[in-house]
Simulated assay, not measured.
Amino acid sequence: MSEKNISCMKKINEAIRLNQFDDLSNLEEVWVFGYGSLIWRPVFRYSEKIVGKIRGFHRRFYQSDMTYRGTPEFPARVATLLKDPTAEAETYGCAFKLSGKNEISAGIKYLHTREVEKAGYSVTVEEFHSCESPPIPALVYTATTENYYFTGKQSMEELSDIIANASGLAGPNTEYLFRLAEWQREFLPLVEDDHLYELTRMTKEKISKIESEN
């Protein structure tokens, strides 16, 4: 990582530590890592988008959602990131560059409301790696075990059954899962993701079974 990006990472870490996210708008740019619906549905303005990965995390569907893809009566399942004890795991997605005070301020405000205030995610800064640039610091939103909506480990059978049936304000839970899997297959065809692809396969089987019974 360049000296410029090391300095930027330190400033971001300090803003996170002090819970002073408004200070981020004073930076020249801020990158945000998306690994769920942000990949295919970013609803904030950004200046650049790069495909790549962060290291040391597994993506898992262990976060419940009672608003966008589910309801309080039938919570959906969406993605979060779990630390890999071996630090060998990799999670692929996109990094979005927010440039200038207005773009950074608006983007961070939106993400903080959506991910932190409504969903209880925590914020860290991690190194984002891609073929297009040296490592860059990127904000990452993850749900930890302290999060009220964090479900903990569930079997593929349980997850696929929930996702096949849940729906919320933004649409069915299946759209969230399938579009994520489709994106990764299109842009990263050589990358294997056993959790994502097996969950997709089993959820499609559940849907076929539901349709055949109706």
Rank of each mutant, 00 (worst) to 15 (best):
Gly171Val: 09
Glu127Thr: 13
Pro172Trp: 11
Asn165Glu: 07
Phe150Met: 04
Tyr176Gly: 01
Pro172Met: 07
Pro135Tyr: 10
Asn173Arg: 04
Glu158Phe: 01
Phe128Pro: 07
Met156Trp: 11
Pro137Arg: 09
Asn165Gly: 00
Asn173Leu: 07
Ile163Leu: 03
Leu159Trp: 03
Thr174Trp: 02
Thr142Val: 13
Glu157Phe: 04
Pro135Lys: 11
Ala138Gln: 06
Phe150Pro: 09
Glu146Lys: 14
Ser160Glu: 03
Glu146Ile: 08
Glu186Thr: 08
Gln184Leu: 15
Lys153Phe: 05
Pro135Trp: 10
Phe150Lys: 03
Glu146Pro: 02
Gly152Trp: 02
Glu186Gly: 01
Ala170Met: 13
Glu158Ala: 01
Ser133Trp: 12
Met156Glu: 12
Glu127Lys: 15
Tyr141His: 09
Ser155Tyr: 01
Leu159Lys: 06
Pro137Cys: 14
Pro137Thr: 11
Pro137Asp: 13
Tyr176Ile: 08
Ser133Tyr: 14
Phe178Asp: 03
Ser133Ala: 15
His129Ser: 10
Leu159Ser: 10
Tyr141Cys: 08
Gly152Asn: 04
Thr145Cys: 01
Pro134Met: 12
Tyr149Phe: 15
Asn147Gly: 03
Thr145Glu: 14
Asp161Ala: 05
Leu169Asp: 10
Ala181Cys: 07
Thr151Trp: 01
Cys131Glu: 14
Arg179His: 09
Glu175His: 10
Leu159Thr: 03
Thr145Pro: 00
Leu180Val: 01
Thr174Asn: 01
Pro134Arg: 12
Phe128His: 12
Glu186His: 06
Tyr176His: 07
Ala181Gln: 06
Glu186Ile: 03
Val140Glu: 00
Pro137Trp: 11
Asn147Ser: 04
Ala143Gln: 08
Thr145Leu: 09
Arg179Asp: 09
Ala166Leu: 05
Thr151Asn: 05
Cys131His: 10
Ile136Val: 15
